[in-house]
Design a protein around this nucleic acid. Structure first.
Lengths: 145, 145
DNA sequence: GTGCTTGCAAATCGTTTGCAATAGC
DNA sequence: GCTATTGCAAACGATTTGCAAGCAC
C-alpha cells in the first residue's frame, strides 16, 4: 500500500532540487511522495508525529514553503479552507469528489495541455485543471452512466 | 467603464435563480455583474459601504453563499488566502498575473472543455481552468514573445 | 405574527511571525 | 563559532457562528 522509498533516494531527490536534506525534510518529502491523498499540513503532522514526537507544525509550514519555492512539490488550491500538497510534479489534473471528499489525480493528454497553454500574449507558467463532481467509487458499481 | 445595470433587471435575475431580492442582494449582484475584477468580500464591502453605511460583512458572506447555492455566481479558488467571486457563470478560465496580481477572464474554445469533460466513470459537475503567469500588460508592449 | 434577512460581537481555525534553542559543518 | 534549521508561543486575519433586532408578506 504505502510505498517504502529508500531514504537515500529521498535525500538525493531533495539535493537535486537544491534542498539540503534534514530528518524533517526527508520525512515530509517521503510521505508526500508515497501517498496520493494530497494531504494538508495537519494530516502530514498527524502522520509523522508518532515517529517524530518533537515535530512542529511550523517546521512543516517552513518546509513546504521551501519545497514549493524549489519546485519540488505542487500546492493545490481546491477550496479556500485547507491548502493541500502534492509530491507529484508532473502535469496532471485533480478531481474533487464532493461525496467522499477525496482528491484523485487525473491524467490529461499532453495535446490538451498544449492547446490550453496556447494563450496569445501571455506568459503561462502554470496551468491548473480542477474538476468537481462525484467519483467512480461514489457513483457505485451498478449505476448506469 | 462600470456598466450601469437597470435595477429591475438585477431583481429579475435574482428571481430567475430562486433568490428573493433585497437591497443588499441586489447591490452585491449588481456589483458582481458590472465588474470583471473578481472581487473579494472586503473589496465588495469597501465598494458598497459608501452607499450602504449599515452594510455588514456578515451579510455579504451570507449573500454570496446563497448566490453560490443557487448557482448565480462562481467561487474562485485561486490562492488559499482570499476567496474571490465571479458574477459571470458561463464557462471560462482565469489567468492570475503574479506581477500585477490581477485576474483576467480567458475564453477557452468549447471543444477543449468538451475534451476535458470526457472523464470516464466520473460525474463531472464543474471544470476549473486556472492559469498563473505574467499578463500581456505586464510583459509590456515591446517585449518579443 | 411568523419566518426570512440583516448585522453586531465573539469565536474559530489555518497560517504566519518573532524569537530563542538546537543542530550541522 | 557561525549559519541554517527547528519549534514554541503569540499574533494575525479571513471566515463562521450565536443571537438579537429589523423587515416583509
Amino acid at each position: 500500500m504505502q510505498e517504502e522509498q529508500p531514504i537515500v533516494d529521498i535525500a538525493l531527490h531533495l539535493k537535486n532540487h537544491g534542498i539540503r536534506p534534514s530528518m524533517q525534510r526527508m520525512a515530509i518529502m517521503e510521505y508526500l511522495m508515497g501517498t496520493s491523498t494530497h494531504p494538508s499540513v495537519d494530516v502530514i503532522y498527524s502522520h509523522l508525529l508518532p515517529k517524530m514526537p518533537t515535530l512542529s507544525r511550523t517546521t512543516i509550514y517552513n518546509t513546504l514553503e521551501l519545497f514549493r519555492e524549489k519546485g519540488a512539490i505542487r500546492v493545490l488550491n481546491l477550496d479556500n479552507k485547507i491548502t493541500r500538497y502534492d509530491g507529484k510534479t508532473t502535469e496532471h489534473a485533480h478531481f474533487v469528489c464532493r461525496r467522499c471528499g477525496r482528491i484523485y489525480d487525473v491524467e490529461i493528454p499532453d495535446e490538451i495541455y498544449e492547446q490550453l497553454n496556447k494563450l496569445p500574449d501571455h506568459l503561462v507558467e502554470q496551468t491548473d485543471v480542477n474538476y468537481t463532481g462525484v467519483c467512480a467509487e461514489c457513483l457505485g458499481p451498478n449505476v448506469i452512466r
